[in-house]
Amino acid sequence: MSTNFLNRIMVALYSNPWVKKRWSQNFNALETDMIPWTPLQKPLSQCKIALLTTGGVHLKNDKPFDMEDKNGDPTYRKIPSTAVQEDITITHKYYNHSDADKDINLVLPLDILRDVQQEGLVGESAEFFYSFMGHIDKHHIKTLVEQTAKDVAHQIKQEKVDIAVLVPA
């Protein structure tokens, strides 16, 4: 049986709410007591915003995420905040993204943010948004926490972003 076939079965299985619940109860997540905290500094309408996703989203002409390494890929992709659905694709074999392929807003709410900005609820967008492929395990978690996530955080700070909204797959 091919690995891809097995993977498809697993993805289908985890779409079941009961299986998802059982899995999450046993998931050995990184635990911590310290929680970082930055109070909101100004009204949302004046806040510069960045979006982030872990849905494996990237520009069609960018390098896809690595699907060969079973521990995942801790790298990230930059997506211009002006991007539209047609510019974008998803490389992530650990969830069923057939709906998100059709409507990218499910994992990266580009159009939704524009609507909310038109209403004046939130300020301008950062130049770039960021995407990870959330299936990250073992030694790649260290790379994520100590390198790539920090790198993204620094870039967002340099852009003078005030708020960030993060969306999982």
């Binding site: 998931f27 997540a29 990184l30 929680i35 970082p36 905290w37 930055t38 109070p39 909101l40 500094q41 806040c47 960045a50 982030l52 872990t54 849905g55 995942g72 650990y94 969830y95 990870f132 959330g134 299936h135 990250i136 395990d137 978690i141 994520l144 926490v145 996530a149 920090k150 993204v152 955080a153 620094h154 967002i156 700070k157 972003v161 005030d162 708020i163 960030a164 909204v165 993060l166 969306v167 999982p168 797959a169």
Partner: peptide
């Protein structure tokens, strides 16, 4: 795992002085 990754990235961004919310 995506939810763990969101949380870990979110924590790094908040640490840089940016207010974050994660789904």
């Amino acid at each position: 795992m995506c939810n763990q990754t969101v949380g870990l990235v979110q924590r790094e961004i908040e640490t840089q002085g940016i207010s974050t919310v994660g789904v």
